[in-house]
Amino acid sequence: MRTSVKFTAAAASALLALTTLTACGGTGSQDAAAGGDNGKIKIMVGGLDKVIYLPARLTQQLGYFEDEGVHVTLLTEPAGVQATTSLLSGDVQGVVGFYDHTLDLQVKGKQVESVVQFAHAPGEVEVVSNKAAAGLTSPKDFKGKKLGVTGLGSSTDFLTKYLAVKNGVQTNEFTPVAVGAGQTFLSAMKQGSIDGGMTTDPTVAQVVDKNLGKVLIDMRTPEGSKEALGGPYPSSSLYMNTDWVNSHKDTVRKLAKAFVRTLKWMSTHTPEQIADKMPSDYAQGGKELYVQAIKDTLPMFTKDGVMPADGPATVERVLKSFNPNLKNASVDLKKTYTTEFVK
């Protein structure tokens, strides 16, 4: 039965991507290079049903892309690192994922920038299974543990490593396990293949509701982000190749306008009203639980899409604490984001 659940989740994700790609008339770097010139854009999301990336689908549901005259196809990958791969390979024009990838990519010689900043907190939660709870009470106890992340090299992986190093545990002293999110994460906790892990809503809400575990560290609010990471941590964003942005400014401006309009709409509507606009199958644990997941995550979002002033510096400090690629590298933070299109 457990194998069936995992296959179904993977198959559904693959089917969604395949269906959307077919509707677009195919992919490929040549097609992507032309994207935007005809108002057609492909955006890869690091998990369309994750509440941290809710503005992507909500903008589509509200009709704001069409209002701006851009025809957006949203694709989905289970983790942000996989979404980034799609951008670099030229299959899509943009990614809705974590801003921290722009710094990681810059030191690898790839110039990518955030053009709309959805959030000023990670929206991530470290949960611990009930079975492991007695021996895992803080990041100081990460040593020897198996900790779930959406994917190796993902933002959940980055943040888990930072919390470990900050609390005296080296990155080679615990085992990160790529378990995705949703049903695959829940199954991993249920089977005991992970002791805990970092995930987002609605998965967090289901972990607690099904009594599989409890919250260890909550970074869904600016306050929680500051306590765990020492400052605001800009996370969910729309990021794109800088060269593409510079050559398609009118299209990027329209996208930014649509997303900012959504962020403002979210700030003036209740979690119930937001949930009502979303596809019903996003409420995997039931409507009431989905509404609670949105309510718990809403504080992470900005209202204007603008990068918080001291946010990039926090991200750089966090990444440099454990990432050998960035540790001694010089990062030009001003090239990792722009406010030109949202202000």
Score class of each variant (00 low, 15 high):
Leu75Asn: 04
Leu105Pro: 05
Asn130Leu: 10
Ala134Met: 06
Asp141Trp: 09
Lys143Asn: 14
Ile52Phe: 05
Glu173Tyr: 09
Thr102Gln: 01
Lys145Phe: 03
Thr76Leu: 01
Lys161Asn: 15
Gln183Phe: 03
Lys110Thr: 09
Gly63Gln: 03
Gly97Leu: 02
Thr59His: 03
Leu103Met: 15
Phe142His: 14
Leu54Tyr: 11
Phe142Thr: 07
Lys145Val: 10
Ala83Trp: 00
Asp104Pro: 01
Val125Ser: 04
Asn167Val: 05
Lys145Glu: 08
Pro78Cys: 09
Gln106Trp: 04
Tyr53Ser: 01
Gly109Trp: 09
Thr150Pro: 03
Gln82Ser: 11
His101Ile: 00
Val149Gly: 07
Gln111Pro: 03
Lys108Trp: 02
Val165Pro: 05
Leu62Asp: 06
Val128Met: 02
Lys166Tyr: 11
Thr73Glu: 10
Leu87Ile: 11
Thr102Ala: 07
Gln106Cys: 05
Lys108Asp: 06
Tyr53Ala: 01
Val116Trp: 10
Val177Ser: 02
Thr175Gln: 15
Thr85Phe: 00
Gln93Asn: 14
Val115Asn: 02
Leu186Pro: 15
Val169Thr: 01
Lys190Ala: 11
Ser86Asp: 08
Gly109Met: 09
Ser187His: 09
Gln111Lys: 15
Asn130Asp: 12
Gln93Leu: 03
Gln183Glu: 14
Ser187Ile: 13
Val72Pro: 07
Pro55Val: 11
Pro176Leu: 10
Gln117Ser: 13
Val149Cys: 05
Pro139Met: 05
Pro55Leu: 10
Ala164Val: 09
Glu173Pro: 12
Gly168Trp: 12
Asn172Val: 10
His120Asn: 15
Ser155Gln: 02
Asn167Asp: 10
Arg57Cys: 01
Thr59Ala: 07
Ser187Glu: 13
Leu103Cys: 04
Val116Cys: 09
Gly135Glu: 12
Val107Lys: 12
